[in-house]
Deep mutational scan, measured.
Amino acid sequence: MSDQEAKPSTEDLGDKKEGEYIKLKVIGQDSSEIHFKVKMTTHLKKLKESYCQRQGVPMNSLRFLFEGQRIADNHTPKELGMEEEDVIEVYQEQTGGHSTV
């Protein structure tokens, strides 16, 4: 019986991991920090939209990076291997420009 009891508790931990929340720091170019608590399985588009709304800027005017890689709207913290207190960097999107060649 103890084996049966242990097995469901392991499964519960697996389920808990799926719905687990982590805190992420979003740091802007001006070094301002906003902290977000997100589920591991939530699409990061929600975090990006919330950040842009707080900053009063359109979402397409900023780019969000985690460990140097651009974050897509459909990425989740779990897919990117994010952990508690990880940092997302935000930069002004640069458009235009010309070749110097």
Rank of each mutant, 00 (worst) to 15 (best):
P8I: 06
K17H: 10
Q94C: 11
H98F: 10
E18M: 12
G14W: 10
D12W: 00
D86N: 14
F64Q: 06
G96M: 05
L80G: 01
S61T: 08
S2T: 12
S61K: 02
P77C: 13
I27K: 11
G81R: 07
C52D: 02
R70I: 11
Q69L: 07
G28D: 06
L62F: 10
V87L: 14
G81A: 14
S99Y: 08
M40D: 09
G14F: 14
D15M: 07
V26A: 14
F36T: 00
E20D: 11
D86T: 10
S31Y: 15
E49H: 04
N74I: 08
L13R: 13
K25W: 01
F36K: 00
R70V: 12
G56P: 00
S50N: 00
M59P: 11
T76P: 03
K23P: 01
R54V: 12
S61A: 09
T95F: 05
Y21M: 09
L80R: 01
E20A: 10
M82P: 02
L65G: 01
E79A: 06
K39P: 07
H35M: 10
K25L: 00
E11W: 04
S32I: 10
Q53Y: 15
E49P: 00
A72M: 15
E67P: 04
E11T: 06
E83F: 05
Y21K: 11
Q55E: 12
F36V: 04
Q4P: 11
Q92P: 10
T100E: 07
F64S: 02
T95E: 03
L24D: 02
V26R: 05
H35P: 05
G14K: 14
D15I: 06
V90Q: 02
E89R: 07
E83Q: 06
Q69R: 10
Q53G: 05
T100Q: 09
N74S: 14
A6G: 15
D12P: 15
G56H: 15
L47K: 01
E83I: 13
E18I: 10
V90H: 04
K17Q: 12
M1F: 07
V26H: 00
G68M: 00
H98P: 07
G14L: 14
I34Y: 04
I27M: 06
I27Y: 04
S61G: 06
E33C: 03
L65C: 03
K78L: 05
D3T: 15
G14C: 11
